[in-house]
Simulated assay, not measured.
Amino acid sequence: MLLETHGLTANYGQFRALFGVDIAVAEGECIAIIGANGAGKSTLMRSITGVIRNEPGMVLHRGTPIGALSSAEIMKRGIAMVPEGRRLFPSLTVEENLLIGGQARQVPGPWSLESIYGLFPILRERRKNSGTALSGGQQQMVAIGRALMSNPELLLCDEISLGLAPVVIRDIYAVLPRIREGGAAIVVVEQDIGKALAVADRVYCMMEGRVTLVAKPADVTREAIHAAYFGEAA
């Protein structure tokens, strides 16, 4: 497996947010993590990327324990994050925001400024604009492009559709197959169940810091998702 978590726990002070979470991502795979607000989805992403430190063996990258590594060390291993809320640098242009992603991990791969502009042509037009002067959808494109500039083998996308218009969400999701063609595995954290099921090879549902369902989209029923999402039968 490219990435695994084993009995992953996470705390915010005295509050425990994750309770023994096990997930696995194979090379080139797309998995979706769904669940209501407060289910622990973003905490899981922060734990994988080193924002929240863990016991080393709780997170494995290609079999190597990385749970105690820093965010910078984890990114250098090829795990990149598109954070919730985008978090662009307001003092930098679109192009400068993208270039920062390339500085984080300088390795050969399919993604460069030119290939990012090919993926999102509007960013070439706006490359001299401040990153935060764009529309929400365009800012999300910059955030995705910045992460891709490190040529990751695993791309984590935390709520990439949040607050965006349906037509923009469609365009954002349309590029995920192209990203996979470049060799990256993808983890999509999403509240829109339909979007998640449409792109994923497997789906994990979380509730109150625990995994309540693991299934292939074709095998899961509406009733099973409802029960896993809310803890009750439909």
Rank of each mutant, 00 (worst) to 15 (best):
G118W: 00
L119K: 13
L119M: 11
F120P: 11
F120G: 02
P121Q: 08
P121T: 02
P121F: 07
P121N: 06
I122N: 05
I122L: 02
I122T: 05
I122Q: 09
L123N: 03
L123R: 14
L123Q: 05
L123A: 01
R124Y: 10
R124C: 13
R124M: 10
R124I: 01
E125L: 06
E125G: 00
E125P: 03
E125R: 13
E125C: 00
E125K: 12
E125A: 03
R126P: 12
R126Y: 05
R127Q: 13
R127V: 00
R127H: 11
K128D: 01
K128C: 00
N129A: 02
N129C: 02
N129Y: 06
S130E: 13
G131L: 04
G131D: 11
G131P: 15
G131F: 01
G131N: 12
T132R: 15
T132G: 06
T132D: 10
T132P: 13
T132W: 06
A133L: 09
A133W: 07
A133Q: 13
A133S: 13
L134G: 01
L134Q: 09
S135H: 02
S135A: 08
S135Q: 09
S135T: 08
S135E: 07
S135K: 06
G136R: 02
G136P: 10
G136N: 07
G136A: 07
G137F: 05
G137N: 12
G137C: 10
G137W: 08
Q138T: 04
Q138R: 06
Q138N: 07
Q138P: 12
Q138H: 03
Q139K: 08
Q139V: 00
Q139N: 03
Q140E: 03
Q140P: 08
Q140K: 08
M141Q: 12
M141S: 02
M141A: 01
M141L: 04
M141D: 06
V142F: 00
V142N: 05
V142T: 03
V142C: 03
A143K: 11
I144Y: 01
I144K: 06
I144P: 15
I144N: 10
I144V: 12
G145Y: 02
G145W: 01
G145D: 04
G145F: 02
R146N: 10
R146Y: 02
R146P: 15
R146G: 07
R146I: 04
R146Q: 09
A147P: 15
A147N: 11
L148N: 09
L148P: 15
L148S: 10
L148I: 08
L148M: 10
L148A: 06
M149C: 04
M149I: 00
M149D: 05
S150N: 08
S150Y: 01
N151A: 04
N151E: 10
N151S: 07
P152I: 00
E153K: 14
L154P: 15
L154E: 07
L155Q: 13
L156V: 12
L156D: 14
L156W: 14
C157A: 10
C157H: 00
C157I: 06
D158P: 12
D158R: 09
D158F: 03
D158E: 13
D158S: 07
E159P: 13
E159Y: 07
E159T: 08
E159W: 09
